[in-house]
Design a protein around this nucleic acid. Structure first.
Lengths: 100, 100
DNA sequence: TAAAAACATATGTATATTCTAATAAATTAA
DNA sequence: TTAATTTATTAGAATATACATATGTTTTTA
């Protein structure tokens, strides 16, 4: 409980809080949940989300820049997938805790 | 994967995202972590956080209104504690996932 | 009762977030 | 090459968030 440990806990809180901020938008969290089930195109994600295409693209780009997801082009469509291995673990934990 | 299930997943995402939003501020998350270790006064939390008192009070009030924490008065100080049983489970999960 | 201590609340300001609408870029199909 | 398809980007407006500062409230102490 010295200054060093408290600081390190604060740092971890800052890191996790930053991730939570990204996951704090319902559609972004939903997108991640879908991607946890497997790779998906923007169009499919858009259909699943029901939000306008630019909004989806903006959410995806944000999560991509943060390294949570990655993309590859196939023809003229983009396929997104989970890139951060901690995301599926986090989603699974949330499903366990909030299954009620 | 019918409309009903997708909707229910969206609802759960909205609920969890809303919680994440509250936890997306480093100081709020840190406050919750401290409270997971036991009841604490505003003054102690303020010392631990290093933020101005009104800021701490505002964070605490927000989490109180959302039912995450509760408070009781002892003399002229307020003692806060975790009120939502899902919070400790969530914090523990995060510690597991982000222990590296 | 008056002052002090601990906490809560109100207000204004700066910044961040989210969305819409329009447009650009990349690829494929005609 | 032109048109269509899919995705990305940009700009601006509306809203939300976070903080500093000042003040209010409750309880204890002098």
């Amino acid at each position: 409980m010295n200054g060093k440990k408290a600081l390190s806990e604060k740092r971890r809180c800052a890191r996790v809080a930053s991730l939570f901020k990204t996951l704090s938008h319902p559609q972004r969290l939903y997108l991640l949940c879908r991607l946890c089930d497997g790779e998906s195109t923007v169009q499919d994600l858009q259909t699943a989300c029901g939000a306008p295409q630019p909004v989806i693209s903006q959410h995806l780009m944000r999560m991509r820049l943060e390294g949570l997801i990655a993309a590859r082009r196939v023809g003229n469509s983009m396929h997104y997938r989970i890139a951060d291995p901690q995301i599926p673990a986090l989603i699974r934990s949330m499903e366990k805790i909030f299954s009620a």
